[in-house]
Structures are given as structure tokens and as C-alpha cells.
Design a protein around this nucleic acid. Structure first.
Lengths: 166, 166
DNA sequence: GTCCATGCAAACCTTTTGCACTATA
DNA sequence: TATAGTGCAAAAGGTTTGCATGGAC
């Protein structure tokens, strides 16, 4: 069974959301939803534009942004900002809907992992600070196994020991 | 003792960094460093520009960006992106140099807290994924105590239960 | 037929860059 | 005096918006 048919129900789910909101289900919206749901990557708008050019006809950037906004509102897709200067999008329909990210500073690869520890932190800040957690983001930046074993080194720079020399 | 004199050594620290790098210590660079070190907020470039207008003469935006770049390189200042569409800057000379952020979705306030739990997570990903952590970012979004007690509600929206209805 | 979406281009916002002029060391 | 910084304005890059046209229901 191909990924395409496997993910078909998710595209229909987006259609249901649109109908519930009284919004038209257009070819472009379905095409964009397909791209996002059939990928397990963290897609940039540029990635999506590229994929659309290959499969569906040319779709305007404005439409991509507007549709991504709807996908995020529907809660089927999550928006990420890894500090690259643009956003990335990822559907939330995988087997691990809540996960954190490991970002390699050398090659840019994004790995996913789960962390139950964060729930403990959320409970603690609720108790200690009266803060009611809704969602969180944990990103660890460093070197992925391949880059580390490949001997990659990160430039250090800066003052060696700022506090002590104050 | 005023905050100004208390933080003076930090400005000198930046001067030392500049000299070490063979770069001139200019009035503008000192003025910008002062603003950042004397504040305990998470400042935007706009905030800094505003503060400069009040205290020092007018300083060009380009100079602010270029100086912030130096401050970040010196490791005396940290760059943050809370997904607002622009960056914020915070000095790293407080008593809690490594901390995480609680961001209120209602009023935008940013609170700081410490989490030792994250070090456990870092050790785990090193063991389990061979990923070498360098730095991390943990942000919890939700309602601060004031907004929660003030009866703030966050709009839910979206499909209620996407997975199950697939 | 009524809305709303689309596509294009222009606008917007933050950040970066080029260049003539000025200040540091 | 040599070198690098500053300020201005223009450019760049991602994202948003206005508006005439076209598609969904």
C-alpha cells in the first residue's frame, strides 16, 4: 500500500474541517494538504512550492500561506521555527504526535524524540509559578551521530569565562 | 548602588572582548551594550532603538544589528526567537545564566525558570541517539498566573479529535 | 447567483548590505 | 594615518494584503 493511499484519510479530515467551517474545498487546498500529509519531513513553504510544481500545476505562494494557516488552525499541522529565518510545517498525524527535536548544527538534520520528562517540568511550573501550560517546545542543538563521528567540530569563540573575570 | 554602576563591569567586559579581537570600542557600541546589560528584559531591536533615542543620540539600525551580532559572538548576550517575527536579546550575566522560558499566550509576558530535568534529557539523547548536545531551548507556552486568575480562556478551535475520526 | 478562493503584484517587516563619510587607535 | 565603524538608503528574504478574476457550492 503506497503512502499516498495510506494518508488519504488525513486529506479527507482536512476537507471535513473546511466544511465544518463553511469554507470551500478547492483543488489547491487538497493538493497542499496532500503534500504535507504525505511527507514526514519538516517542510518549508519553498519545499511545498517545489513539490506542487512537480505534481499539481503551479500554485501561488499566497495560496500556500493561506492554506497552511488553515491547516494550522485545524490543528492537523504544526508550525515550527528552527531559527532559520523561515517557518517549517509538519503534520500531527504520525504515531508520535507530541515529540521534541534534535537539530544538528553541522548538517541541519532534524531528528525527533520523545520526552516524558517535559510533562514533569510542566507540572512543576504549574505548582511553583502558577503557570498553566498549554504547549511546549524543546529543541536540543548539537551534533548528530554522523557529524560527530565524522569529526565535526563547532567553533567556540567569545570570552572564555565572562562571569569570573567580571 | 544603582543598576547602572552595578552593571558597569559588564560593559567593560565587552570592551575587553572587542580589544581582544582587535576591534575599536566606539561610543555606539558602548551605548548599546549598556542598554542591554542594564536591562533584565528580553529586548527587541525596536526596544533598544527606543532606549537609545532617550539616552544616547540617535543610532542607526544597522549599527544596532551589527553590535548585537558582536555581543552574541562574545557570548555575553543570547539571541531568542519567540515566534513573534523578530528576535529578542538578553544578556547572560544574571545569577541564572542558563534558564528556560514560560511565555504567556494572553499577555505576552516572559517568565524565566530553571530546569535541571533538561540535563537528564540531554544525557539520554546522547546515549540513545548518539547526538551530542551543545545547547537547548525549552519554552512552555500557556497562561501566566495573572491571566489565568483573571479568567483568560484560550480559543481552542480545530478538529476536536483528529486521529480517532480518521 | 452568491461567496469565497486564487493569482499576481505590491506592500510590509525585519534584517542585511553597499558606499561615502567619520571616528578610533 | 591606516583601519574599521557609522549612518543612510537600498536591497534582500519571508510573509501578508489588495484587488480583479475565476471556482465552489
Amino acid at each position: 500500500m503506497s503512502l499516498v493511499s495510506t494518508r488519504q484519510p488525513f486529506v479527507r479530515l482536512f476537507g471535513r474541517y473546511l466544511r465544518d467551517e463553511g469554507l470551500p474545498v478547492t483543488q489547491q487546498r487538497e493538493a497542499i494538504a496532500k503534500i504535507v500529509f504525505e511527507s514526514d519531513e519538516h517542510l518549508s513553504v519553498h519545499d511545498i512550492e517545489q513539490a506542487l510544481r512537480d505534481r499539481a500545476g503551479r500554485v501561488g505562494k499566497a495560496t500556500i500561506y493561506r492554506t497552511l494557516d488553515l491547516l494550522v488552525r485545524s490543528r492537523l499541522v504544526e508550525e515550527h521555527d528552527f531559527g532559520e529565518g523561515f517557518k517549517r510545517y509538519e503534520h500531527r498525524l504520525s504515531e508520535h504526535p507530541i515529540h521534541e527535536h534534535l537539530i544538528c548544527l553541522e548538517c541541519g538534520t532534524v531528528l525527533e524524540f520523545e520526552s516524558n520528562e517535559v510533562y514533569g517540568v510542566e507540572n512543576r511550573v504549574r505548582r511553583e509559578h502558577g503557570f498553566v501550560p498549554v504547549r511546549h517546545r524543546l529543541e536540543i542543538y548539537g551534533l548528530c551521530r554522523d557529524c560527530d563521528e565524522g569529526g565535526a567540530e563547532l567553533p567556540v569563540g567569545g570570552l572564555t569565562c565572562p562571569i569570573e573575570t567580571a
